[in-house]
Design a protein around this nucleic acid. Structure first.
Lengths: 266, 266
DNA sequence: ACCGAACCTTTCACCAGCCGGAAAGCTGTT
DNA sequence: AACAGCTTTCCGGCTGGTGAAAGGTTCGGT
């Protein structure tokens, strides 16, 4: 089996430590590689097999990994349990879901919620129209910031150094409409900030238009973005801007209220 | 601040290893303790502070932990990303959600999905009526098997040793209707197996009635359970049994189809 | 049935890297 | 200003981790 993804070997100074090796091992799991044998774990993480053996034993004892019937390892339920305490994903999600559901039920278009992590976005929650699902944005998946409406919102409100990094780096082209000129993208981002929403018109693929708006945390910073994705010939996306913004603001308000109540998800 | 939960110190043979210490540290997080300072992590995990410091550094470097503005540590987004690859939670959830949503929209009662982990149940997904939310079953939370309808289904189909363990152990009473007599519970579980569903009538609290049915994996084993929770004076729960069973069977069928397509969630 | 390949598991002796006490910074508080 | 609590750094002692290698097992091919 050839690897579609480059090997995850890491050669940092700190990568010799046991903890780093353990993390390298669990980091080999990603979409499309959800079950691995011990040998695969060793190969993909760059950790020697005997070492991997012992580490995997301990991870499995604790429940971070599990073995299936075939003896392969997969991410364990216990790890998911603690991960579901991550404020930036599940904490946010818990509050945002009712709003997203309302938006979905009034429009029946795909609704997305994402946060920024470094110079990428991570999809945190989505509601999809079953008749019409693009598998693409997997919950838990990472995607580029400069392509989608939701990414443009997050990029527009990112710290300067992140924005400059993305603007400097190569801007991968997906369609003829994708922004690949840094100067143009910079102009667009300024508009996103001043208007309070972003539109991505066939920049990811030629069939879809996205409308996105920022979600603010209790301290006024942008902690997430909400988007609605529709087919570009379905309806005029301008009509949807208000709806998306109102929903995003509703989530922001709920976050502020939850913050005041003590349990502050950011 | 006094701890509502007993200290998580562990003194096993293997608990001296670095990996086990790291896991002990991330294991100190649970509902109600989502943000901890380094000192708290050290105290709650039993790991000396200097050691905890080094381990936490590495966990934070990788993204398993993050620091918030106040300098406290919380579960990081990166950990949630890999955890969202756990077949028994997110894999199952991805398939079950549309069915759960349909059930919710036709009834507007609370819908739950849970799996068994050891002698407890872990809530994997839920749809709640906003007007009427009991905060109780937090997604990612653990609960006893003998009290709720969903737990009774999971317990009825658990391996013998698990069932015996639960029957032997103390059966905590929540209301006057809770099953606390092992012989009685054993009889109930046999009925659950033969009838293909479970009903919990005010056994958790005096207001709610639950109806639950098993979800089968591709190999015919019970991998999860689905439940509908209603107020006991709302409607005759018998009317709901058919609906819950049909929905659970729909999920089972979808799991089988996904299994045949290669990506087998269990 | 036989053989070979690939994988999983276990052992072992050495030494790299970890452990943790102690003390120095760094806040924010009385 | 002194204090209390938390975070960070340092370093000697030594223990648990490491990786090669061998035995066991499962599979597929001939």
């Amino acid at each position: 089996m050839t690897d579609p993804i480059a090997e995850d070997a890491a050669d940092d100074e700190a990568s010799r430590s046991v903890v780093s090796r353990a993390l390298a091992i669990i980091g080999t799991f990603h979409g499309g590689r959800e079950r691995q044998s011990l040998s695969e774990l060793s190969r993909n993480s760059g950790v020697p097999i005997a070492t991997a053996y012992r580490i995997v034993q301990r991870l499995a004892d604790w429940g971070a990994l599990e073995r299936d019937e075939a003896g392969k390892y997969r991410i364990g339920l216990r790890l998911w349990e603690v991960a579901s305490l991550a404020p930036r994903s599940m904490g946010l999600q818990r509050i945002a879901r009712p709003y997203m559901q309302d938006l979905y039920e009034t429009t029946h278009y795909n609704v997305q919620l994402a946060v920024r992590e470094g110079s990428e976005l991570v999809s945190v929650e989505r509601f999809q129209n079953p008749q019409y699902r693009r598998g693409r944005p997997r919950v838990g998946g990472r995607y580029a910031l400069h392509v989608t409406a939701i990414g443009l919102v997050l990029l527009a409100h990112a710290p300067d150094e992140v924005r400059e990094e993305v603007l400097a780096g190569p801007l991968k082209r997906y369609t003829e409409h994708t922004y690949t000129d840094p100067a143009q993208l910079r102009r667009v981002l300024a508009e996103v900030r001043s208007h309070g929403f972003a539109i991505s018109d066939r920049q990811m693929d030629l069939d879809h238009v996205g409308v996105a708006a920022p979600v603010f945390g209790p301290d006024g910073s942008v902690v997430a973005a909400l988007s609605l994705v529709l087919r570009h010939d379905d309806v005029d996306e301008k009509n949807m801007v208000h709806l998306v913004r109102v929903t995003a603001n509703g989530i922001s308000r709920a976050l502020r209220k939850a913050g005041e109540a003590g349990r502050a998800p950011v």
